[in-house]
Every structure is written in C-alpha cells, then in structure tokens.
C-alpha cells in the first residue's frame, strides 16, 4: 500500500519531528510513503475565521494535490476533520463534491489508520514512563476516534497510561480563539493542566500539535515539568 502524507503547516514549520516520526512509523508498518511536495495548508485557519472564499481555494488545491493519492494519512485530527467534515460544507460545485467524496473516503488520521485500517496496535516501541492522554476535540468529536490512540499507547512496552479527568474537555486552543480571547483560552488551559497534574504523569500525549502547543505553552510558562508529546513522536522516537 502507498500512503501520501498530509502534513499540517504547523507541523511542517514548528514540529517537523512529528512528520519525521510518522514516516518512520509508516515504514515500520510496511507501507511505502510519499509526500506530495506541492501541499501547503488545508485552509482551516481561514475557514474557522469565516473566510470561506479563501478556504475554498485551498480546498480545491488539496484536491489537486491529493486527488490521485491511494491513501492519505495525517498526524492531525484537526486537519483531517477539516477535509472530511468541513470541506463538504463549503464546496458546492458538484464535480468537486464528487471528487471530494472519493478523497475523504481515503483520508485518515494516523492512529485511526494504523489501528482500524492496518490492524496494527503494537509497533514495538518502548517507553518506560507515566503518560496521560488528551482527547483533542476534532479527533474525538468530529472523527469519533478515541480508542485507537489508547490502543497504541497501551501496547507500548513499559508505559503506564493514567486517564485524566475530563480528557475530552477542550484545552482552549481553538485557533484564533486563543489570541482573540486570551483570558478564556488561558483559563481553559489552566483547568486542563490541573487535570493533567493530578495524574502525576510525566508526559501529556495527544494527536494534535496545536493542542500540545497550547497545553505545553501553558505548562512551561508555569514552570511545570510535564512535557507535551505527540503520539507520533512517542511511537516513532522509541521504536
């Protein structure tokens, strides 16, 4: 099977290790990987801010870039849901919609892909640490993925997974929401951090770099020692 990587712009620019580790993981899973280099951004920042015109242009581009791909895999629940859930809301052109239906059927968030498509739960990673898992909103509620990442974590050797209270409560990121309403966004990060602290975990794991940026940014400003960790980094670094 060939997988085309769909790497969010945030990962590309700020957290490239997530993409690199995803490549490692997919190769380990026995699939060949390619990276359509013409890709940029799925358009979510524009869409979420109400700029549908701009978002539609980027949705069209996505279809151009990934139209021929056999399978599309992304290390982000948020960008995956942009394609699978929100593109259908803004693309009106019947031809594009038909094309979109085909493409979205082959687009997956990576934990969902590994567990539910490939049937792989154990990649052979070892990580002797206590971790807790944050359910990113889009992955959890738009895509309904919450078992797969936990399966992958549980199969890591020597790891201890401790659930936090309200793991599906929003971290407060929400794109531009985080800078438009900094007090509310920070209050949400504060409560999320309190829930994480209670678990006494060393790492907080999630499948979206944006949530981790928010949670990690707050934790480090508070001088708290818990480290944010993308699931792809957890699995890929420790193979």
């Amino acid at each position: 099977m060939n997988v085309s990587l769909f790497i969010p712009c945030l990962v590309d620019q700020f957290f490239p290790s997530v993409g690199i580790n995803l490549v490692k993981i997919l190769r380990k899973a026995g699939v060949s990987v390619d990276y359509p280099r013409a890709q940029t951004c799925c358009g979510q920042p524009a869409f979420n801010s109400g700029y549908h015109e701009e978002a539609i242009q980027l949705a069209r581009r996505f279809l151009e870039v990934f139209g021929e791909a056999e399978t599309i895999v992304s290390p982000s629940g948020s960008c995956t849901s942009m394609v699978k859930v929100f593109y259908p809301e803004i693309l009106q052109d019947p031809d594009l919609r038909r094309q979109l239906r085909e493409v979205t059927g082959r687009t997956y968030e990576f934990s969902d892909f590994l567990v539910n498509v490939m049937g792989i739960k154990d990649l052979g990673a070892t990580f002797p640490h206590r971790v807790t898992y944050h359910d990113a909103c889009h992955l959890f509620r738009e895509l309904g993925v919450h078992r797969a990442p936990r399966e992958l974590i549980r199969h890591v050797r020597a790891i201890e997974l401790v659930e936090m209270e309200n793991s599906d409560a929003c971290c407060g990121f929400g794109g531009t929401f985080s800078v438009k309403f900094p007090e509310i966004s920070t209050a949400m990060a504060q409560d999320k951090s309190a829930a994480i602290l209670k678990t006494e975990a060393e790492y907080v794991v999630a499948n979206d770099s944006s949530c981790l940026m928010q949670i990690g940014g707050y934790l480090s400003r508070q001088g708290l020692p818990i480290k944010p960790l993308h699931l792809a980094d957890l699995l890929g670094e420790n193979l």
Binding site: F14, F15, T186, G217, Y218, R221
Partner: peptide, 18 residues
Amino acid sequence: PGWSPTRDFPALAATSFK
C-alpha cells in the same frame, strides 16, 4: 500578541519537514 503573556510560543524549527 494575545498568546505570549500567558503561554510560551514555540520557536520555528531550524529545518522544516519539507
């Protein structure tokens, strides 16, 4: 602005994934 007063913002990666 809006972010940095309460949260650290990450540094740009030296090498992009691309």
